[in-house]
């Protein structure tokens, strides 16, 4: 049988016990809703985004990856927390990118040529979207209806909006990529809460041992995912 979201999820907030057998006993919450409630009692404090930016990331990522019949969306999976935490890594500072000038633009197929690293893309991109939505809708992005939010995301994706120096499409791709990373990365990084992303896909996580499952004639893999820390669902 496939693991589904109807099964109770165990999620431990006792980080010190992760990966030990006592983790299983100590894991707190009996269900998905309980996990969410526990989380709401201690909301994550962003360190890179300010309150307005964080609300934007939460709202926009939920539209990109919404909760639906398939399972949790970006908000329940902790995608905004994931992205905020990523902003403190070398990746967000572009430390593995070639960032020497001159920065000359060319055909799209020759790749990214902007002088902005992910941190800049978020700072400038969010400010640009907020400016755009206030102009066109009289409110900030997070306060718009889902339909209006989708209109804006569609415009960004389609490339018809420029956000200051950042093309809307570039910002959209950055947000989409990081949102999906947050939904499916190991929970170690703050997203994929309760392994909800992996359960939806039927991905076993860090099991990394399929000796007896190389060919089972198309049957679904039977075991629930497990994370690097030993968290399981």
């Amino acid at each position: 049988m496939e693991p589904t979201l109807n099964r109770p999820l165990r999620r431990s907030f006792v980080k010190g016990l992760l990966g030990t057998t006592s983790f299983w006993m100590a894991s707190g919450n009996a269900s998905w809703t309980a996990a969410l409630a526990a989380e709401a009692a201690h909301p994550y404090q962003p360190t890179f985004f300010d309150a307005m930016e964080y609300r934007f990331v939460e709202a926009a990522s939920e539209r990109l990856f919404p909760a639906d019949d398939n399972g949790p969306g970006a908000k329940a999976l902790g995608v905004a927390e994931f992205i905020d935490r990523q902003m403190q890594t070398p990746y967000a500072r572009g430390e593995n990118w070639y960032m020497s000038g001159p920065f000359q633009q060319g055909p799209a197929n020759l790749g990214y040529q902007l002088p902005f690293v992910p941190r800049d893309l978020y700072r400038n991109g969010i400010a640009g979207v907020e400016h755009y939505t206030r102009q066109h809708y009289g409110k900030g992005f997070a306060d718009l209806s889902p339909v209006q939010q989708d209109e804006i995301l569609t415009a960004l994706e389609g490339g018809s909006v420029q956000l200051g120096e950042v093309p809307g499409r570039v910002f959209f791709e950055q947000l989409r990529t990081n949102t999906l990373e947050g939904a499916f990365a190991d929970p170690l990084y703050g997203g994929n809460r309760g392994l909800g992303g992996w359960i939806m896909l039927g991905f076993p996580g860090a099991r990394a041992d399929f000796m007896d499952w190389v060919n089972q004639e198309g049957a679904p893999y039977p075991l629930a995912p497990v994370s690097i820390s030993g968290e399981s669902a």
Binding site: Y98, L110, G111
Partner: peptide, 18 residues
């Protein structure tokens, strides 16, 4: 260190940044 890339000889090659 990286490389620059262009498709044809009449183009300016641009850095492979990512």
């Amino acid at each position: 260190s990286t490389v620059t890339i262009r498709n044809t000889m009449d183009q300016t090659a641009l850095p492979y940044r990512q």
